[in-house]
Design a protein around this nucleic acid. Structure first.
Length: 864
RNA sequence: GCCCGAGUGGCGGAAUGGUAGACGCAGCGGAUUCAAAAUCCGCCGGUAGCAAUAUCGUGCGAGUUCGAGUCUCGCCUCGGGCACCA
């Protein structure tokens, strides 16, 4: 192949490093605080350093990069940083599984991932990079912990954890498999430990109300958060206990359905309720039942899915409205101590779970209301039907109501019931939240140490600020069960910061959600020796566009919203940053087919995409010819071997192809299926664009300029459409328009000058997605400077207006023809043309239309 | 179990309540070539028909509307979250 023809083909391995070096040299991506310019802060959720980047990361960061490069072209001073969510369990697991130190494992993974990310050509300001496990970072986190402790935002209380009695360690929910520890296989116990908590529930009302102001967040995320916070209005009251144990003469309950009070059938209490604890002391059967309940994991999912079980304590309570009416008290495994009062009354007629429970233990079922329409088809729960649970907004007929009208909605029933109970002195209306305080203690090594000291004389004492950071000791091992900090020979023993007497350090570290709850603020002053710097935070905050996975819709985002408020209260963020994320975009996953065969026992054996091939007979294993089962579109996972390695894609096709493909096929909020054919197609298209530019540069245009104006119009149309796509996070439609624009340029008979102009605009429009190719085309066709520095093109509205428009004609809603009319034709003109149309004349058969609907510029509908 | 989404040709998907299937992939036909690769051009939802055209068609079933992929209600399937995975 001659040198000339080699250059006529796109060669990513040559141009990509070249332009990356040019951007670096020009300092294109350094975020500069320039008060003369508007700023734009775009942030993708930072990754956990697993060691390999994943095609999902490529998609996530490319989206952010498209926004960053676009906003930069629009004249904004852009902040687009990257860092590492570097504390957490996998590093410790790796140390336990294969030796080594979590620190070495983590930093080596970070170096590997950075090396894999750099070739993607992302417009990241790498000078701001940090990892949350850097002592410089967690020192500031410890400083804020002490500030928040002083401000009363943090406290200690007992809470239950999953305890593995063999490994002597606390397990995460995901480490509990069918009630057993994943490593030891031991039956997991629930154990109470004294732990640290953030008072996030004090902010429940505020966090809920402020959701309304988050206009550029997806509605579904706001809904999920609102449901999670779970504001409810209900009745709190007490059943008086008959012959209860000492100091227990009542059971306080909370209900959101006080209108069902006359349908009460039993009282249920949590196995962790003080009354249950008092009873189990001298009743071995109750103790055994509570112990069984405590063998369940701590997750709400597990509690809800478990078979509902109860234990009749033998105790009875009196109904508040009828002292002769006695109800049994059960300890029930599905009642959470943390929610409400840890005790409920069960109304089986109107709650599926209570009904299951009542039928199991042969408890009475009494309806308090029935459908408003007596004729409605309905099997009452007492007659074997399902629990009757209509919407609260629906009108029902109260058959055992005690307040309000017989016919009223559930909402009205609840309101009148609360009022009646308050009137009768039975209870009071209260507002409660489902949101619980945020437990931040973790009994693990690889996390930010909680900077407090336990002194026998002074109690819990914060470390002195000048002694921060409390560094993690490096000399630890993971060959023994339990937390290495607990058994460290010297690290634990320190003098009390208050009295100087020998004392012990706190050995709990912080939940990694704390690390990720303020990293976005730290990026504004990543190397400061305070958590933030006021001028920097004032300028750069808030995050204008945050991008990440929908899996973070609740916890990470809610914790961050709380933490920003806590940082404001402790003077680390301005008032405006109480809601730190102006706009949120949640992207879908990248999926891939799974290829599997079966071994002799029928168990699946997975195969890598490169190990299989498509033949006429179907998909087979290349080496053996064995037929392969194909599972479509599954979340990528290492164990299923359906992971696509972006490093290989970049090596064979270049970064631009990888970026173009992940942005092209699916709408960004949806999952995208990676296919080899799709990547190939992306590469071909980029090659085509390059070739058009190359031929234009070498030979000019083949023939005259008859369609120069048409091409100019198409260029403005492309600018408008592509810009709209980027602004609206519809990158796939922007790319579809760019395909169309390429076809147009190839087809139109335009002069060399007009084509070059169109191609320069093409380069600009492509530059957010395929920045290297864009620079190459730009420089080939005489663009000035770097396309990365060129201002975004503007569409001229005058060039977008069409003269005529085709109106489809519908007859009774079905398309039967079309007419061509002037863009601004008035209704009368259109109506006349429509009535004269053959199909319409035929359909009307001489009669008059019943109705004639003209939607200007869109459609005409004749109702015959 | 509870909360939140998604479902459109062979495939990925497009469509302010207004022509369903833009754009891409795959497939089919053609040009170029000694041949191939690469490239270029055309066709491409189902059914009936030579065709014009008719008819069905956006997971399923109802409803609102002149008009529904889009709005409402009830289902089905798949995905995310459920507080110690990140």
């Amino acid at each position: 192949m001659s040198r000339g023809s080699a250059m006529s083909r796109l060669n990513p391995s040559e141009i990509e490093p070249k332009w990356q070096a040019a951007w670096d040299e020009a300092g294109c991506f350094a975020a500069v605080r320039d008060p003369a310019k508007p700023k734009y802060y775009v942030l993708e959720m930072f990754p956990y350093p697993s060691g390999r980047i994943h095609i999902g990361h490529v998609r996530n960061y490319t989206m952010g990069d498209v926004i960053a490069r676009y906003k930069s072209s629009c004249g904004f001073s852009v902040l687009h940083p990257m860092g590492w969510d570097a504390f957490g369990m996998p590093a410790e697991n790796a140390a336990m599984a294969s030796g080594g130190h979590p620190k070495d494992w983590t930093y080596s993974n970070i170096a590997d991932m950075r090396d894999q990310m750099k070739p993607l050509g992302l417009s990241i300001d790498w000078s701001r990079e940090f990892a949350t496990c850097d002592p410089e970072y967690y020192a500031q986190q410890q400083r804020m912990f002490i500030d928040m402790l002083d401000a009363g935002l943090i406290y200690r209380k007992a809470a239950v954890v999953n305890w593995d009695p063999v490994d002597m360690t606390v397990l995460a929910n995901e480490q509990v498999e069918q009630g057993r520890g994943w490593r030891s296989g031991a039956l997991v116990e629930r154990r109470e430990l004294t732990q640290w908590f953030f008072r996030i529930s004090d902010f429940a009302e505020e966090l809920l109300e402020a959701l309304d102001g988050l206009e550029n967040w997806p509605e579904k995320v706001r809904l999920m958060q609102a449901n999670w916070i779970g504001k409810s209005r209900g009745l709190q009251f007490a059943f008086s206990l008959i012959d209860g144990p000492a100091s227990h003469d009542r059971v306080e309950v909370y209900t959101t359905r006080p209108d069902t009070l006359m349908g009460a059938s039993f009282v249920g209490i949590s196995p962790d309720h003080p009354l249950a604890k008092a009873l189990e002391k001298d009743n071995p059967e109750i103790a055994a039942f509570c112990a069984e309940c405590r063998r369940m994991g701590t997750s709400e999912e597990e509690l809800e899915k478990a078979e509902k079980k109860g234990f009749d304590t033998g105790l009875r309570v009196r109904h508040p409205f009828d002292t002769a009416w006695e109800l049994p008290v059960y300890i029930a495994n599905f009642i959470l101590l943390d929610y409400g009062t840890g005790a409920i009354f069960g109304c089986p007629a109107h709650d599926a779970r209570d009904l299951e429970f009542a039928r199991k233990y042969d408890l009475p079922v009494t309806s308090t209301y029935a459908p408003a329409d007596p004729a409605a088809e309905f099997v009452a729960p007492e007659a074997g039907g399902e629990a009757y649970v209509p919407l609260k907004s629906e009108k029902v007929r109260y058959v055992k109501g005690f307040a309000g009208d017989e016919l009223q909605t559930g909402e009205q029933g609840i309101d009148t019931a609360i009022a009646a109970c308050e009137e009768a002195g039975v209870g009071r209306g209260v507002t409660k939240f489902r949101l619980r305080d945020w437990g931040l203690s973790r009994q693990r090594y690889w996390g930010c140490p909680i900077p407090v000291v336990h002194c026998s004389a002074c109690g819990v004492v914060p470390e002195k600020r000048e002694n921060l950071p409390v560094r993690l000791p490096d000399d630890v091992s993971f060959d023994l069960p339990g937390n290495p900090l607990d058994r460290h020979p010297t690290w634990r023993d320190v003098p009390c910061p208050s009295c100087g007497a020998p004392a012990k350090r706190e050995t709990d570290t912080m939940d990694t959600f704390v690390d990720s709850s303020w990293y976005f603020a730290r990026f504004t002053a990543p190397h400061a020796d305070t958590p933030t710097i006021a001028e920097e935070a004032d300028y750069w905050m808030n995050v204008d566009q945050y991008i990440g996975g929908i899996e973070h819709a609740i916890l990470h985002l809610l914790y961050s919203r709380f933490f920003a408020r806590a940082m404001h209260l402790t003077g680390h963020l301005p008032e405006k940053s109480k809601e730190p994320f102006e706009a949120l975009f949640t992207q879908g996953m990248v999926t891939h087919e799974i290829y599997l065969t079966r071994d002799e026992n029928g168990r699946p054996v997975y195969h890598l995409p490169e190990e299989v091939e498509r033949t006429e007979a179907g998909v087979v294993v290349k080496a053996t010819g064995e037929a392969v089962e194909v599972v479509p579109s599954a979340k990528m996972s290492k164990s299923k071997k359906n992971v696509v390695d972006p490093v290989e894609i970049v090596a064979s096709y270049g970064a631009d192809t990888a970026r173009w493909f992940v942005m092209s096929d699916s709408p960004p909020e949806r999952d995208v299926e990676w296919t080899a054919a799709g990547a190939e197609a992306a590469f071909k298209h980029l090659g085509r664009v390059y070739r058009i530019a190359f031929e234009l540069k070498e030979a000019g245009a083949p023939e005259g300029g008859a369609e120069d104006t048409a091409l100019e119009r198409a260029t403005h149309r492309a600018i408008a459409d592509v810009t709209e796509g980027i602004e609206g996070f519809a990158f796939n439609t922007s790319i579809a328009k760019l395909y169309g624009f390429t076809n147009t340029i190839a087809k139109y008979k335009a002069s060399a000058g007009a084509r070059a102009q169109a191609m320069r605009v093409m380069a600009q429009l492509m530059s957010p997605m395929t920045p290297h190719l864009a620079e190459e085309v730009w420089s080939m066709l005489g663009g000035e400077g770097l396309v990365a520095r060129a201002p975004w093109p503007k569409a001229d509205p005058a060039m977008l207006v069409e003269d005529t428009v085709t109106l489809p004609i519908q007859i009774n809603g079905k398309r039967r023809g079309e007419i061509e009319v002037a863009k601004d034709a008035d209704k009368a003109t259109v109506e006349a043309l429509v009535l004269a149309h053959d199909a319409v004349v035929k359909a009307l058969d001489g009669g008059q239309p019943k109705k004639l609907i003209v939607v200007p510029g869109r459609i005409v509908n004749v109702v015959a």
